[in-house]
Design a protein around this nucleic acid. Structure first.
Lengths: 178, 178
DNA sequence: AATAAATAGATGTATATACACTTAAATAAA
DNA sequence: TTTATTTAAGTGTATATACATCTATTTATT
């Protein structure tokens, strides 16, 4: 059972939980945002996507925190791993970020301080900086990825077929542009 | 056609677009994050949800910016409207936020400065503050909601049946906890 | 009634997002 | 070859998130 709450109440007769401490296992959107006034199913779906993304991020961040990583720092490390041992410049990382408007130079600043990545000038283009994973970065990434995968396995029990269908629908949603 | 880019290039032979200016109409996740290494369909689905949420927020924020609102400020206004003319305390708003960890007191600070909401002490509980929409708040909300709805109609062409199915799958995902 | 526990809201700090802007370098066009 | 355009990375500012902590107040328990 996964909780968002910091503590379980000591009293026999509980007071109301504040929303911050409320169980994260609430499933229904209507209950999570305490509203059932949706313009239509598409409106509900957009709120559902935003809520599910928050839910996923919150769960993952709890695990990543044990490794001193934020969700975004983890994303940068994974991108670097994807091409390892090749080096990537800041732009290459930005392009691969899930949230495109992330400020990659500053995320890298923090990873450099923790000695998980190294910055160097590019030999081919003097405007560029190239980023490399350090051995420490590789180790932290491996350990945290294992924990994240374990969390996902515990948390989400979805049929492969259902996940496939979800992927189709999400791309259908984004692609519906005319 | 919706762009993320600030400008269209003046040159005949274009240089590469930087990722920040790249078209937002990329549909395929593989292309958007330039990776096709997914552990399984569920892993891909989780990235797809995070990316789609970012995409939705980015699109909506562009519209809301014309009204001087952030996505979160808009969410607070909508929640207040949902119970209008009833007043809500900060906790009631927090519970209804899509992103539960939002810091509602500070979002309200900014809405108060813009005179879109009013703060007052609760008569029944001295710890509480009650928040009310002002006439200006109602007006800005009505206008911005119209624009947002219009955007959604233009942007997303999804069958009602598909949106329903998407809602089922998202709740299935969150509810799959054991 | 006195005390312990919990709540409501606010505040402080580190990190991240959104967006505008700057500088140096690279590239296309004149 | 000179100039205009574009790119890469970084910086500054306002806002938001994540999380811990504080104070006043309310509620349950003793």
């Amino acid at each position: 059972m996964v909780f968002l709450c910091k503590f379980l109440p000591k009293r026999k007769i509980y007071l109301e939980y504040t929303c911050m401490y409320m169980y994260i296992c609430i499933v229904k959107l209507e209950q999570a945002i305490q509203s059932n006034k949706f313009k239509n199913e598409m409106h509900k779906a957009s709120l559902n996507i935003l809520y599910t993304a928050w839910w996923l991020k919150t769960q993952m961040s709890k695990v990543l925190k044990e490794f001193g990583l934020t969700h975004e720092q983890y994303n940068v490390l994974r991108i670097l791993k994807g091409k390892y041992p090749e080096q990537l410049c800041v732009k290459d990382i930005s392009c691969r970020m899930i949230e495109k408007s992330s400020n990659v130079p500053r995320i890298i600043d923090r990873l450099v301080i923790k000695k998980l990545v190294k910055r160097a000038d590019s030999p081919t283009d003097k405007r560029e900086t190239v980023i490399t994973l350090t051995q420490a970065g590789l180790a932290v990434l491996a350990a945290s990825t294992e924990s994240v995968n374990q969390l996902m396995d515990e948390m989400v029990r979805m049929e492969n077929r259902e996940a496939e269908q979800l992927n189709v629908l999400l791309e259908r949603l984004r692609g519906a542009e005319v």
